[in-house]
Design a protein around this nucleic acid. Structure first.
Lengths: 199, 199
DNA sequence: TAATTTTGCCTAACAGTGTTAGATTTTAAA
DNA sequence: TTTAAAATCTAACACTGTTAGGCAAAATTA
């Protein structure tokens, strides 16, 4: 009885240790540095032992993804309780989502496949900034003179970029594929932003 | 003279072939399958030869990133010429950006670090859909009854998600870090969307 | 208690990765 | 034709995920 339970508990502990060790490594050195042998080192085992707890490396990522979603839902619930009106609750939940992404950056990365690739985005290379400049200039052009400030145009540029890039990312990383929906969201967002600039 | 030029040309060709072979492999098998030996195979060389054209694998990714930005700028210029009003031009450029992301999916992925991680997002796991459901329900709640349809709420949910996730992705993949800007864009977007639902 | 089975864990290996050093062959120059 | 240089290859190193097989400790059975 008790011995079986104790063994069960040790096994659960080890499983948990594997997940925690993985996350620690990723926090310290990034997703690219996560390896089975490194995880094994952290929990004082050899690599093959991990395969008794997870069928492969992907299964570890998958479980961390699941944990991320659970944690996110928890944070959103907390946030919701702090407000009474539904509008306030909705805003609080989105802000909780926002804060979660940075507080648990590594989890968010594995949940949504957002990763920084090498490429230090060297500002020296003008090719990188040309698309941005084209859009920036055009936003400046349609901005009424009385509003025209660097901060204002910056804000509008990032609003545009966020919604478009966000929608693209969602399409590329999930297999949700609903063309009409995309078209409507995109058109709504763009025309909405253009109107908000002009008026 | 001519022989030197010819050699130069062959070298340029090989460099170009390396980039094209890389992109072909990625298109066929995804970024995870791109390896130096595989590239070498495609251009009928052995792997070390590649190092005479690119200092390492990252340099290849970097060059593909640059090419992506050049191509994107070209597409946006094309789109801009098709419209006369600045508003129309701005919209056309964003739509060009949108279409580029899917027409040159692999380039967009390396440019912005957007990749699908394993995880087939199995619908069976309810943990994955809980955050979405929480937000969806709350949007439904604040939607006036006469507008309340599945399509409408879906569209609003994706609008929210796009702008928030987009802003997060931009923050995670670039080292742009401007907190005030983030806060303003985020607050603008959320309150703007909430208002658009209520009115 | 002794024999047997099960469990836990490890070492060694395979096939793959990026990358470098050194030898070898091919090409160009003297 | 000999010599210098350039182009290319083979072999290796240190990694990666993953699997097979063995050894020793623990648990079970006789």
């Amino acid at each position: 009885m008790s011995s079986k339970d104790r063994i069960q508990k040790i096994k659960e502990d080890t499983r948990h240790n594997i997940l925690r060790a993985s996350l620690d490594i990723v926090k310290e050195e990034g997703w690219g540095a996560l390896s089975m042998r490194k995880i094994a080192d952290k929990i004082d085992y050899t690599a093959p032992v991990i395969y008794e707890y997870f069928s492969n490396k992907d299964a570890i990522l998958k479980e961390l993804t699941r944990i991320g979603y659970v944690k996110l839902a928890g944070k959103m619930e907390e946030a919701r309780e702090l407000s009474t009106t539904p509008e306030g609750q909705l805003e609080a939940m989105w802000l909780a989502y926002w804060h979660f992404a940075f507080a648990y950056k590594e989890l968010y990365q594995v949940m949504y496949g957002v990763e920084m690739n090498c490429c230090s985005m060297e500002n020296s290379c003008p090719d990188y900034v040309r698309p941005m400049n084209m859009l920036w200039d055009k936003i400046e052009e349609i901005t009424p003179p009385e509003k025209r400030s660097e901060e204002y145009i910056d804000r509008k540029y990032y609003s545009f970029w966020s919604v478009v890039h966000g929608l693209i990312s969602i399409n590329l990383t999930t297999q949700i594929n609903r063309d009409e929906l995309n078209r409507e969201v995109l058109k709504d967002a763009i025309s909405g932003l253009i109107n908000s600039i002009k008026n």
